[in-house]
């Protein structure tokens, strides 16, 4: 399809190598106006998708990083207490009635907008809202999200319901540290982001590091692919591949051999046990791919 091809091409020029499946899903998300849930191992470029999509649509990216204990106040809105208190103090001697004063300090001027409210109230263009690592937030927070995702509105008790003028384009990412609720899943399109195959990874490396030597790139992709099949504690993601490529570039290496791997393993593997294990293995096997 033409639209999908052009979307793919556009993401490509922005530096993101998207496969047919992802491009289809993104197209569908924009068309159906449904949120998209991306799951996959850490470091496979889930967050990056939101970044390039915002760039592609030339709109604002609003990001909400989830963590345990994330609540309404830090995700949707909070009253500006200081301003409210000051306002009361200033108006202490005015003639306004109690009710008027109260209405005044619970107005829109006294609200601090947090990411979700900001995404809903965007005035010019629908923003891309990235809700990152939703699995880290609590289940209660998921419930807050549901209203927003399905009806594109947020309820604030003192102000009433705020409806979006331009419904945001929502992307959720999850690392699967916790199972998400079915209710949330059902409101989203789903896409599993896998580790890339060698060709795609090679394309990504070339794209991000245009100056890299062909031989080096091929070798390093081969090594990374081999490492991923090794049942490590934390398999290297694409970001690690790029890190490694950059460090090899910086060291001026033209070729990878066992000693190079040993010296630079730290930018590829991020756990001591993994590093120790690989160091003691036969590194030439990892280089040539004979498993």
């Amino acid at each position: 399809m033409k639209e999908i091809e052009s979307l793919k091409h556009s993401l490509d020029t922005l530096g993101y190598v998207a496969d047919e499946e992802l491009a289809t899903v993104l197209f569908l998300m924009l068309h159906l106006k449904k949120p998209l849930l991306l799951e996959g191992h850490p470091g496979v470029g889930k967050t990056e998708i939101a970044n390039v999509l915002a760039e592609h649509l030339q709109t604002e990216l609003i990001r909400l990083q989830c963590y345990e204990g994330l609540d309404v106040h830090s995700s949707i809105y909070e009253w500006n207490y200081q301003k409210q208190l000051l306002s009361i103090k200033i108006r202490e001697n005015s003639d306004a009635s109690e009710a008027e004063k109260e209405k005044m300090i619970f107005g829109k001027d006294y609200i601090l907008e947090r990411p979700l409210l900001r995404a809903i109230t965007a005035k010019e263009k629908a923003p891309v809202l990235l809700i990152d690592e939703i699995d880290r937030a609590d289940e209660e927070f998921e419930a807050f999200l549901l209203e927003m995702l399905s009806a594109n509105q947020i309820s604030i008790p003192e102000l009433g319901t705020i409806k979006a003028i331009h419904p945001p384009i929502v992307i959720l990412t999850s690392n699967r540290t916790r199972e998400l609720s079915d209710a949330l899943r059902r409101r989203c399109l789903y896409h599993w982001v896998n580790y890339p195959d060698p060709e795609k990874e090679l394309k990504i490396v070339r794209k991000r590091l245009p100056g890299i030597e062909e031989k080096l790139a091929r070798q390093l992709v081969q090594v990374v692919q081999n490492l991923r099949s090794r049942n490590l504690n934390k398999a290297p993601g694409i970001s690690e591949t790029l890190d490694w490529a950059m460090s090899l570039n910086a060291l001026g290496k033209h070729e990878i051999d066992a000693s190079v791997i040993r010296a630079t393993l730290g930018s590829l593997l991020k756990s001591n046990e993994d590093i120790e294990r690989i160091k003691h293995e036969n590194l030439s096997e990892i280089l040539t791919g004979n498993l």
């Binding site: 289809t24 569908l28 998300m29 159906l32 799951e39 079915d182 899943r185 059902r186 789903y190 896409h191």
Partner: peptide, 27 residues
């Protein structure tokens, strides 16, 4: 059904991916 109306059905592969993202909710 809406997917069909977008013309995604022309290409079987695209059609598969589209329905997959819609009907699946986990890996």
């Amino acid at each position: 059904l809406e997917i069909v109306s977008t013309g995604l059905i022309e290409n079987k592969q695209n059609f598969r991916f589209a329905l997959k993202s819609l009907f699946c909710s986990s890996q």
